[in-house]
Amino acid sequence: MTIASLLEPVTGQPGPARLANAGDWMQGRTLYGGASALVAYTMAQRAFPDLPPLRAAQVGFVAPIGDEIELHAEIVRQGRNVTQVRSEIHSGGKVALTAFWLFAAERDANAKRPAEKLADWPDGPGENPQAMQGQGPAFIQNNFEIRFGQDKDADHGATIRRWARLTEDHDLDPVSKLVLMGDVMPPGAMRIMQRMGPISSINWSFNVLDPQTRSDGGWYLAENASQYADSGYSSERLRMWDSEGRQVIEGLQCVAVFG
């Protein structure tokens, strides 16, 4: 199911909407986090179509999202270069997702520092076996191709790294594709859980390092790494690189670890 069919009801006008094709993007009883974030981002884009490129976002996953929703968007502040927009998804009359988007025009650089290269860069996706065949939530099986991005027999601590791409290109702009794909990996804390149990993303904050990215073959290397886990929660670092090793997203997430 193309993401365009999911986003079609998002017109940019506030009010009720029905995501008639949400089924292929569900993760349990809620819409997959990347898809729900993309619905909120698309709402901001279509409500205010002349925005500059997205540079950063803060997304709060508040409650489950189904097919019957209500959408809201507002400009919080608009300056000469930077526009800050809030968009929300309501479900059952209550906030289910709230997002704060920072759009900013390009300016002459007064500071330059490239992102550090990944030290143990893996072989390309074509040289790595497929992962999660017949495993994982339905939205993965329906919409993504996943390949290993690290030696599956080695000890990687609390880090999960995989090559990922959409099985259909969906005609998405580069940033929309990053929003949709940026939350695709399970948390690194899954590697260190003492017993299996449910997990749930609570929030997701990220910076877009390259809003024009177009990676070869649509492949991106995605990584989730638990930086600290205790008391039922994990602080996760989320990163993505294009096929040439250029980092395109730097993010942080809080994950609830049940069981």
Rank of each mutant, 00 (worst) to 15 (best):
E127N: 09
R80S: 09
S215Y: 00
V179C: 05
I160A: 00
Q133Y: 11
H72I: 14
V95T: 10
A154H: 03
L209S: 01
R46T: 03
R162V: 10
N143M: 06
R77A: 13
P114S: 14
K177R: 15
D169A: 09
Q27F: 08
E244C: 10
R18F: 08
F103Q: 01
R107W: 03
R29Y: 01
L54Q: 02
W241Q: 02
R239F: 05
I146G: 02
A47R: 04
S235K: 11
R29L: 11
P49S: 10
R113M: 11
Y228T: 13
G34I: 06
Y220G: 05
Y233I: 14
E250A: 14
E8Y: 06
M26H: 11
V85F: 01
L252T: 15
Y233V: 13
E236K: 15
T159E: 02
A189T: 04
K152G: 12
F206L: 15
A22L: 07
I146P: 01
D24P: 08
S235M: 15
V85W: 00
D216K: 11
N203E: 08
T42R: 02
P53L: 08
D50H: 03
E8H: 06
A164P: 09
G124L: 06
A17M: 07
L178N: 03
F148C: 06
P198N: 10
V248C: 06
Q45N: 13
D169L: 07
P53Q: 09
D171F: 05
Q135L: 13
E116W: 00
M43Q: 12
G124A: 13
L71S: 05
G79T: 02
G12V: 05
